[in-house]
Every structure is written in C-alpha cells, then in structure tokens.
Simulated scan of single mutants.
Amino acid sequence: MGDERQEELAAKAARGDRAALEALLTLIRPQVLRRCARFLPCFQDAEEACQDALLQVARTIERFEGRSLFSTWLYVVVANSARQTYRTLKRRAVEEAHEVTPIDRADPRTTSVIAGSRLDFLDALERLETRRPDLVAPIVLRDVCQLDYAEIAEHLGIPVGTVKSRIHQGRADLRESLLTTN
C-alpha cells in the first residue's frame, strides 16, 4: 500500500502538485534517512545527506517521467546525495586539518569497524570513479540500494548482461582497492 501511495504522489508531484510533493517528502523521509545511514556511519552526517536528498527530490521531481518506478529514481538521488555529503565532509576535514587552531574531533574510522569499513568503501568508490565511472552506478544500485539487475538495467538504459558485467568488474576493482589500502 505504501509503495502504491508513494508512486501516486510522485506522479502528481512531477506534474506540479505542491501538496502531493509535500506529502511525498514526508512519506519518504524515513526510508531516505535509512538509506543515507547505509553510506554514512555518523547519524548527523546521514541526516545531512537525507536533507540534501529531500531537497534534490523537491528541486528535480519534474524530471521524474515515470518510465521507471519512483523508488528506483529515488535510490539514485539518495546514493548521489550520500556520496556528495561524504565528499564534502572529506574536503572539510582536510581544510580543518590545515587550520592553525586544532579541532578536537574524533576520527570516525576509529569509532568502529563498521564505520571504518563504510569509509573505506566510499574511498574505494571515489578511486573507482576516477578510473572507471561507468562501474560506480551499477555497484551502488546493486550492493547499496539492493536493486535487482533488471531495475538497474532499466534505470541506466543498458542491457542486463552489461549490468552484470560492470558489477563483476567493479567488485573486482573495489576488492583490489580495499586490499591494497589496508
């Protein structure tokens, strides 16, 4: 029932219905926050990414054409927002490290194995994106967003076989990258 309501609200919002957009944003917020938390180990960072994702949905909902499910479109927006938030946090950390006044802030990598693993994964994705950007979206959609191959193929506009191949290649590259950095 929730999925049908979500799809209905998304279709109305895409046609310019502001009330439907507000209802949609309220409905999807909990799942967007959960998905952001899959990427970012710190709750405050996940909340920041969630707000960015919701803002992105509000700004770009008219681009949702209904060719795929709204939930698939949303996964991409959320993944991109979470990854962008991570890039911003990384850049801020570098800038703060160069300031004269030291900031007493814990390194998230030392807080838990899970947090460190997520950050290592995001770093590996960044490295992969510089070498093979075509491999990143299929991996994120499959391994983080947990979409099936057909949904990924539909969203990316490529054959299922190509999706599988890119995921296989990307996982191999990520595995190598993670092994060489640890």
Rank of each mutant, 00 (worst) to 15 (best):
L74C: 05
A79G: 14
V136W: 03
A106W: 04
E7F: 01
D45S: 00
Q56G: 03
A97Y: 10
G157W: 03
R35K: 15
A23E: 15
E47Q: 09
V76R: 11
G157K: 04
T110M: 13
D52H: 11
L27G: 05
R59N: 14
R166M: 01
L128G: 09
E4V: 07
Q31D: 09
Q146S: 13
T110A: 14
T180P: 02
R35E: 12
P41T: 06
K164V: 03
R131M: 12
D120H: 09
L179K: 12
L74K: 09
H98C: 03
E22P: 06
V32S: 00
T72H: 06
Q31E: 11
D148W: 11
Y75V: 00
D143Y: 10
P102W: 05
P138N: 05
L125Q: 06
L25K: 06
L9S: 07
L174M: 08
C50L: 04
V100Y: 00
R35N: 11
E62T: 13
L27K: 08
T181Q: 06
R127D: 13
R63A: 15
A97E: 14
A13M: 02
L179M: 13
G116N: 14
L119V: 10
V144H: 08
F39L: 09
I103Y: 08
Q146K: 13
R142E: 10
L54A: 07
Y149Q: 13
L40K: 07
S81K: 02
M1R: 02
Q6T: 05
E99M: 15
H98M: 04
H168Q: 11
R34K: 02
R67M: 06
R105G: 07
A49Y: 02
Q146F: 12
E22L: 12
D173M: 11
Q56D: 10
V140L: 14
E65G: 15
A137Q: 08
A14H: 03
R59K: 15
D45P: 02
R34P: 00
A37L: 11
R127K: 14
E48R: 00
D148L: 11
R109M: 15
A46F: 02
C42R: 14
A49D: 02
Y75I: 00
C36F: 09
D148C: 11
R105T: 15
T85Q: 15
L174H: 10
E151Y: 02
R18T: 11
E129Y: 07
R87D: 01
C50A: 15
P138C: 05
S81G: 02
F121M: 14
E99I: 13
A124G: 08
A49E: 03
R5Q: 15
A150K: 12
Y149A: 14
E48I: 01
A79S: 13
V160G: 04
A13V: 01
T180A: 13
W73F: 07
A13F: 01
A137R: 05
D104N: 01
L33S: 01
L9V: 08
